[in-house]
Design a protein around this nucleic acid. Structure first.
Lengths: 365, 365
DNA sequence: CCGCTTTGTGTAAACGGTTACAAATATAAA
DNA sequence: TTTATATTTGTAACCGTTTACACAAAGCGG
């Protein structure tokens, strides 16, 4: 196996020439300030260990040379990259965009940098992205939901990268996730509608494929209804894409069935807006003819001719706390953040008691 | 200066114990596969230089040990991080979110990772974030606009980090920016309104503070109007925040002035939606009483009772091309992308010729 | 004035990969 | 067979920081 044995100490470098200015950054600063590299390093990272005189000289050298430390080398030496990876299903939904912004702000404030990827609701892709992040040496990970690739745990265990699941909360997994209790959210919303007298409910929602949050919300609706002995009829259950036009389409579809629903619960704000706009096209009165409620509060909901009842989730709070939590863990600080985030049912004009005339199952559209 | 001189070759490591499994990752794989570290490295990066037999053995060792290469170390050694930094003013506006998504997709497809920050339209903050990115060793940068911190060039020159400005295009700076020609965009839109017979124009827009794109668009309006000898009156010029409610407020404000505008050009989609929704509250007919046009196309604009005329910018295209451009430069590939991106004036129901009755400067609101 | 701590600084070995160069081996040409 | 050439593989020096350890100097109570 051992191949060569004779080479008797050749000059270390390739050719004889010292290779123009081969001094690396920190080293260069060190000679300029007539100190050792260790001292320069300390002057930046632990200034109190360096005498004021040298500190001064070093800083002078630094900005005289315009030196910017190499984070890569630092990361290698310290095994800390001050980098956090976040994988979101998408960025084009308001809540994730808001959370991302909050995360980035929070990280930045403490010197961390955000690595971002979008999995497009694909678990396999999410896994690959996480893997990449780990290769890149992220110190922590922010994910969405609790439903991940089966091999994830193994991967994380090896490097012991802390992780936090966002936009979910359940008492069982307390401490590993930050977000709303999705099930309870729609449970409460549904109760509100029940108490208002509604009996025939329709659901217009996005696919629950790889989306445990949406699934939990659906479950919340069904649980609340079940308590009253009510179930959502198949023809009142419409699943589709995430868009206004889809909302219009699905709303029209469920409203064309018998018995006609008096309350339509939408899985996201775009579907709700679509449903409402379609109700206008159909000449329906909201909420007299039908109540429409959504999930998540986007600004337009509050400004439509009939403002829309919805659930507000503090996405910024979710993002901020997730970031804080991770950083605290990394710095071994104690931290007390609420894992279950604030939510609020925002009751606006689009929901109300069903009108009498809708009770008899009759009438053509 | 030289302190010690005697130490006669002490054992290299601290205590005598070999420190449990001190073999670092790649080294560990190497011994497991009975090859040298160089060969392992080659097996991953340049497989064709390694005999199939060893390659096989190495890969076996790799996934038997579950090794994940350390990107930090790799980056240090190769001086390439396969990382791109992007600084956006915000993520909560649809166009930037879409562009970010496109960038990330494109980067991922070629093994790059995205670092993201939001400057909140603050040049100083942007500069700090860029600096941080450079410390982190990004291979390239994606920024928005052409207006950056004065020291930016110096900083970039030192490390020679390639950069691309997005969401802007002007012939003068061809090759350094990718986006729409913002000035021309609103120039054309204004011409369209002029040709329709409008004479009294109002502008409802966001602040142009550190926003050369918005500024260029305003200039486009003014240039087009100037050709006809028209100027926007001070009372028709409303600048504010970026929101629907602000759009409502500013719209009401400009509509309360004399002479009353027959066309309102909005600087972004939210302002346009707000303006339109306020027109409903005010009992105005769009476009008979007033034409409303916006910038950027968000879905709701096409679904409101009166759909809104706007300008569509291919933000995804901007993002994608920016990413491609950078990667091509980094890999020394030739690439032919359009620097000026596609745009389209989408004429919908909210714009039309001014009605006769609006001509006489009269009437109370 | 001497040992004893405290404080400040330097030396050099990591960190975990890549890669120039040399050596060994296989292949082709003569 | 011999020599020239191409192919594989190994050795060890980097990449630019940090940091354990050693040492010198300064401060101090006795």
């Amino acid at each position: 196996m051992s191949t060569q044995g004779s080479s008797e100490k050749k000059p270390p470098n390739h050719a004889g020439q010292p290779r123009q200015s081969s001094l690396a950054g920190l080293r260069e600063v060190a000679v300029a300030a007539h100190v050792s590299t260790a001292t320069v390093s300390r002057a930046i990272n632990t200034p109190h260990l360096v005498s004021p005189k040298l500190r001064e000289r070093i800083h002078q050298a630094i900005d005289q040379l315009g030196w910017v430390p190499d984070g890569t080398a630092r990361a290698l030496a310290t095994k800390r990259s001050y980098t956090i990876g976040a994988v979101f299903p998408t960025l084009t939904h308001g809540d994730f965009a808001r959370a991302t912004t909050a995360i980035q702000q929070e990280l930045q404030a403490r010197g961390y940098t955000l690595l971002l990827a979008c999995s497009d609701y694909d678990l396999e892709q999410e896994f690959q992205q996480i893997k990449k992040f780990i290769e890149r040496g992220v110190d922590g990970l922010i994910l969405v939901g609790e439903n991940h690739h089966p091999d994830l745990d193994k991967l994380l265990a090896r490097r012991s990268v802390p992780i936090i699941n966002t936009f979910v909360y359940s008492p069982q997994t307390h401490g590993t996730c930050i977000g709303p209790d999705n099930r309870k959210l729609f449970f409460d919303m549904t109760r509100y509608l029940i108490e208002m007298g509604h009996v025939v409910f329709a659901i217009v929602a996005q696919s629950v494929q790889n989306n445990d949050r949406a699934e939990a919300r659906l479950q919340g609706i069904q649980d609340a209804l079940a308590e009253e002995g009510i179930a959502v009829r198949p023809q009142h259950f419409a699943i589709g894409q995430w868009s206004i036009s889809e909302g219009r389409h699905l709303f029209r579809q469920v409203m064309a069935t018998q018995p006609r629903p008096t309350a339509v619960i939408c899985g996201n704000p775009y579907l709700a807006v679509g449903a409402y706009l379609e109700s206008i096209s159909m000449g329906l009165e909201v909420p007299q003819d039908v109540s429409i409620v959504g999930y998540d509060d986007i600004e337009v909901m509050n400004h439509l001719p009939v403002s829309l009842t919805t659930v507000r989730v503090q996405s910024e709070q979710v993002g901020r706390n997730a970031a804080r939590y991770l950083m605290a863990r990394l710095e071994d600080e104690a931290i007390d953040i609420p894992f279950q985030c604030d939510t609020e049912i925002v009751i606006r004009a689009s929901s109300g008691p069903p009108s009498r005339k809708n009770n008899p199952a009759s009438l053509s559209l």
